[in-house]
């Protein structure tokens, strides 16, 4: 990729090689151990693409906890393989049919479920969002990503990267990558939002680009919404980025201009998905492909002695069928 783009030297942070296939396990292990210590018998979680659900189901199986996952009905269809994977791991998957039947509705339903059984149940929230202390706790569990990047960069290159890039839905992999670099002001922090069909259309999930301040899901942050505060139905090809809000710490990093947030369309993400597969032999999650897409644009504008780190937050096996359908190929999983 470095050779092909002819600009900055590119490193991939391989969170896709984690057990369960994404960075989600970093947070889940922390929270599930905490749940166990608190004496909880059951964990519940929302999931969009299914990666967080799979990670939660895995940790619950390992630690012998009951596990129920809430997933928008539309997502259960576009990520059918992950539904079966969760069931294989012993979790019960509920298809959520309220609202837009995607990630935000899965969060609503998990919150509702938690109010019914808060005594014996922990809600393993999957991103740096929701009410305190979730945004901080999830950030801290995910901050291992940035710590490892820093350590490995110093060892390998003897200096920090010039830019670190990650995709942002709620923003857990990005916050995990950014956090250890927030005080290193020379390191550009770049979050890639899902623009869907484009930020000038209503088929988008780019919260920073198109949203406004609000209070929802227990946090004050930016949300895609109308003038009366009704949350907008959002859209992205990526189920994991298809959320109308963004973690509050990202909103803060945006406000103080410490991090930059850019919008990447479905089309650009799909092209990056195919590009990375062919050029490196690595199939990225369609979520992570949003970060790859922006790196493709940025790298050629930088000098050869500069360094970009892309957080490859997950692997793309789960997306193969959806990308085939996007390209007009009828494929059955």
């Amino acid at each position: 990729m470095t050779k092909d783009l002819g600009g900055a030297k590119i490193y991939l942070k391989r969170e896709d090689l984690n057990h369960t296939g994404s960075h989600k396990i970093n947070n889940v292990l922390g929270q599930v151990l905490l749940a166990k210590k608190m004496g909880k018998k059951r964990v519940i979680a929302e999931t969009g693409a299914g990666q967080h659900g799979v990670a939660t189901a895995t940790a619950a199986a390992l630690l012998d906890l009951e596990c129920e996952i809430f997933m928008g009905k539309e997502d259960t269809e576009r990520q059918a393989l992950n539904v079966f994977r969760m069931e294989l791991l012993g979790a019960k998957v509920h298809a959520v049919t309220s609202g837009t039947m995607t990630l935000k509705d899965a969060v609503n339903e998990t919150m509702r479920e938690w109010t019914k059984r808060v005594d014996d149940t922990h809600y393993v929230l999957g991103s740096v969002m929701g009410p305190h202390p979730f945004p901080m706790m999830v950030r801290d569990f995910q901050s291992v990503i940035g710590k490892e990047v820093k350590e490995q960069m110093l060892k390998k290159e003897g200096k920090l990267p010039d830019a670190v890039i990650a995709c942002v839905g709620g923003g857990s992999n990005a916050m995990g990558l950014f956090y250890d670099f927030t005080r290193d002001s020379a390191v550009r922090l770049i979050g890639c939002e899902a623009a869907g069909l484009g930020v000038d259309t209503d088929k988008t999930a780019a919260t920073i680009s198109t949203g406004s301040l609000g209070i929802f899901h227990g946090m004050k942050s930016y949300f895609c919404q109308d003038e009366y505060g009704q949350i907008a139905p959002v859209y992205s090809i990526s189920a994991g980025l298809d959320y109308p809000g963004i973690g509050p710490e990202h909103a803060h990093l945006h406000d103080i201009k410490r991090a930059e947030y850019v919008a990447v369309t479905d089309q650009e993400a799909v092209e990056a998905f195919e590009y990375l597969s062919r050029i490196e032999g690595i199939i990225p999650a369609i979520e992570s492909a949003h970060a790859v897409a922006y790196a493709k644009k940025l790298a050629p504008t930088m000098a050869k002695d500069q360094i970009i780190v892309i957080n490859l937050s997950g692997r793309g096996d789960k997306d193969v069928a959806a990308i085939a359908r996007y390209r007009g190929v009828q494929i059955y999983e």
Binding site: S212, L213, G214, F216, Q225, Y228, I231
Partner: peptide, 9 residues
């Protein structure tokens, strides 16, 4: 009602 309709208004 909920926080967001009030805050956004």
């Amino acid at each position: 009602t909920y926080a967001n309709p009030i805050y956004t208004y």
